[in-house]
């Protein structure tokens, strides 16, 4: 180097890897997440709060069996029947609702524009988001299961194969929700309208997918419509884990149909990834 070389130039130093920055982003995102009061309530605690409300409100109904008939012998408690739906809703909230609103807000308030001007790889930004979704949803599920078990005495499955099913339904459901959340983040026209646009979509989906209302109680056409979307399959997968096998009789095909669950979630995952690829921009150039 010549004597005029500037001290600013750090020739030897290299940029940190995308993976390391992804972990750094995840830690940063998780810290920010738990400092946001409204996110914490509407996304993180929501399934737990809903489980508690339904369980207490309908506790007088006693034990219910297949198709909601009273069944004091083989029936399950209200908390037990609501648990799979709330677990599935938690995946949807942590993925779709959280990410869609979060990213739309970051687009609106200049966070993304600032990041776009730094050497942060886009991949690291998304690794950070996935890391945040993974950690917060694991904590959310752990809390939900603990509340169900300890406060409402819901028996949790002991068979290892049930937990294997749980693991893949969880990961596939969460991954699908996360990519759909990223894809949907491009829909709100501003950060301020993000909640107003995203929350109704998520709420309607929960009502038609067997989260709040027993799926079997919905009219056939609505069941068929809901079957197009991933939440119905996430909820059904969760029911296969947490409900006694006799309850498979109230599903559309009379079985848990895990093969179709994997297929539908897989298709949505791929579609969501493609949508992300086209929908996501650091900033809207030339807006």
């Amino acid at each position: 180097m010549s004597t005029t070389a500037l001290p600013l130039r750090a020739v030897a130093a290299r940029r940190p890897s995308a993976l390391r920055l992804g972990l750094s982003r995840a830690a940063y995102e998780i810290r920010s997440y738990f400092r946001l009061g409204d996110t914490l309530f509407f996304t993180f605690l929501f399934p737990v709060v809903m489980l508690a409300i339904f369980s207490v409100a309908f506790s007088g109904a006693g034990l219910v069996g297949v198709n909601g008939q009273p069944d004091p012998v083989n029936g399950i408690s209200m908390a037990h029947s609501y648990l799979p739906g709330m677990a599935a809703a938690g995946l949807l909230l942590s993925g779709v609702q959280n990410l869609a609103i979060d990213i739309a807000m970051e687009k609106g308030d200049g966070t993304l524009k600032r990041l776009a001007g730094t050497p942060l790889p886009v991949l690291s930004y998304f690794l950070g988001k996935f890391g945040q979704v993974l950690v917060t949803s694991l904590l959310q599920l752990a809390l939900l299961l603990a509340v169900a078990r300890i406060l409402f005495g819901v028996p949790l499955p002991t068979a290892p194969e049930k937990w294997v099913t749980f693991a893949w339904v969880y990961l596939l459901g969460l991954g699908t929700s996360a990519v759909l959340g990223i894809a949907l983040s491009g829909v709100p026209r501003s950060g301020k309208s993000a909640s107003a646009v995203i929350i109704p979509i998520v709420l309607v989906l929960q009502f038609v997918s067997g989260v709040y209302v027993t799926f079997a109680a919905l009219p056939d056409w609505l069941q068929n419509l809901a079957s197009v979307f991933p939440l119905k399959w996430m909820a059904q997968g969760m029911r296969s884990v947490f409900l006694p096998d006799a309850f498979a009789a109230q599903e559309q095909t009379g079985t848990w149909d895990l093969g179709t669950t994997a297929l539908v979630l897989g298709v949505w995952l791929v579609a969501g990834l493609i949508a992300c690829r086209f929908a996501f921009r650091w900033i809207r150039k030339d807006s």
Binding site: Y28, R31, S32, L36, D109, G110, T111, K113, R114, G117
Partner: peptide
Amino acid sequence: RLGIVLQSTGESGNV
């Protein structure tokens, strides 16, 4: 190799 200070920012700033 660049440093950028944009004109306006409005981030939530939870850190």
